[in-house]
């Protein structure tokens, strides 16, 4: 497993802390959701950054009151085909205004990087090393986007309006 951040492979500055393990005071940590909610005030009082891993079957609205004290939210792809965290990511970024690190965890493969970027993820725990190495290429795979999301990429619709469909396009598109 490799961590990608800012488009590059980096060392993970956060330590994962299990439910019952002691929390080191001066180190950035990532804790499970239940523990975070149970000890939210204690985590807020820490000096070092705190992150939480939020399960994909729980509404992210529950996390909204705490977002300003969270440095990181990890969302989970238990398997490649389970896309609930895509919705959670967009809600965190676009509705709840979360600005911290949004990390994709679980089964995270090359073929979804661009979707994840578009949904608002900016950090990726990549399952296969070869996929991590191919990150930059995968992130550039497409240059056309039909949907507006919070990532700011310009959509085809925005580019088109005001430009009439040209006859030359018609000719060669119909071949």
């Amino acid at each position: 497993m490799q961590l990608i951040k800012g488009g590059r492979i980096v060392e993970d500055g956060f330590a994962r802390v299990a439910d019952d393990a002691p929390v080191p005071d001066r180190l950035p940590v990532i804790v499970p959701a239940a523990r975070f909610l149970a000890e939210a005030d204690a985590f807020a009082a820490r000096e070092a950054p705190t992150g939480v891993v939020w399960p994909n079957d729980r509404r992210v609205a529950e996390l909204a009151p705490y977002l300003d004290r969270l440095a990181l939210v990890g969302l989970v792809f238990p398997v490649f085909r389970d896309g609930r965290a895509f919705s959670q990511a967009r809600l965190l970024r676009e509705r709840h205004g979360f600005r911290g690190e949004l990390r994709a965890t679980g089964q995270v493969l090359r073929d979804q990087f661009l979707f994840m970027l578009r949904a608002g993820f900016d950090a990726f725990e990549v399952t296969k090393d070869a996929d991590a190495a191919a990150f930059a290429q995968a992130a550039r795979r497409y240059s056309v986007f039909y949907q507006p999301t919070g990532d700011g990429r310009v959509t085809a619709r925005a580019s088109r309006v005001g430009r009439p469909a040209r006859d030359s396009l018609e000719r060669d598109s119909l071949l």
Partner: peptide
Amino acid sequence: QHVTLHPEFTFM
């Protein structure tokens, strides 16, 4: 167009 390669709804 909106649903083609939609980043949120391709793994429903």
